[in-house]
Simulated scan of single mutants.
Amino acid sequence: MSQSLNKAQPYAIGAFRAVVGLLFACHGAASLFGVLGGAMGGGTIDAGTWPGWYAAVIQLVCGGLILLGLGTRAAAFVASGSMAYAYFKVHQPEALWPLQNGGESSAMFCWSLLLLVFTGSGAFGLDRLIAARRSGGDTSNSSTPADGSTGRSAAKDSVTA
């Protein structure tokens, strides 16, 4: 069972990346364009307003890149940092715990995006397609995935564990 789960890992990471990217981009679109409920339930953020407008641009651009799996690690790094800033500068001064200060989504996005910095795009990402074109081959059966992870097998994991 462990080997079949290991084979499914790139697909699970790819689906995780797409969902996190879509949700993150939706927050940016809502704040910038007033769609999907608008900024905090109505309206938009005025252009250039610090930090909200810049955060919304980061959410929309990085969320879109993460959704597509294009430059996933770099986009996730920038996005994770913006959510850490949001949590510690906006939410944490209000109260210690995320449930008390309204910072649950900032904390969850921060850690989810940080995970993508280390895992890469997984399956279905444009990063993999671009890497396959550059190498002139198909990375679907490669022992070293295009996202830079080691691609270690379950047998190697059990030996080193």
Rank of each mutant, 00 (worst) to 15 (best):
S142R: 06
S2Y: 12
A47H: 11
L23K: 06
V20I: 02
I130E: 00
V90N: 09
I45K: 08
D46T: 15
T144K: 14
L22I: 07
S135K: 14
R17C: 00
T160Q: 12
D127Y: 01
G125R: 03
S80K: 06
V78Q: 01
F88I: 10
V57L: 13
A146E: 05
G43L: 08
I130N: 04
P10D: 01
A76H: 03
P145G: 03
S158N: 14
S2E: 15
P98R: 04
I45Y: 07
W111R: 10
P93M: 09
M1W: 05
T72C: 04
L22H: 06
S142Y: 09
G42Y: 00
A76L: 03
N141W: 08
F33P: 09
W97M: 10
A95M: 06
A8S: 03
L116Y: 11
Y87T: 04
A18F: 08
V19A: 04
M108P: 15
A47C: 08
F77Y: 07
G14Y: 03
P51S: 05
A74T: 07
A131F: 09
D157L: 14
L60C: 08
G120I: 02
A18T: 04
D127H: 00
A15E: 04
A55Q: 15
A146G: 03
A56L: 08
A30F: 02
W50Q: 15
Y87H: 05
L115M: 15
V61K: 10
A56E: 11
G37T: 04
L70K: 10
S142I: 05
V159T: 15
S135N: 13
R73H: 02
S106G: 11
T44V: 06
G42E: 02
V90E: 12
G136R: 00
I66L: 08
W97G: 10
G120E: 08
R152Q: 13
G136A: 05
V78R: 05
V57I: 10
I58L: 12
F16H: 00
R17P: 00
N101S: 04
A155P: 09
Y87R: 05
S158E: 11
D157A: 13
L23W: 00
Q9N: 11
T139N: 15
K156A: 13
G34T: 01
A79R: 02
L115W: 14
Q3W: 12
F109R: 05
F16W: 04
Y11C: 07
S31P: 14
F124Y: 07
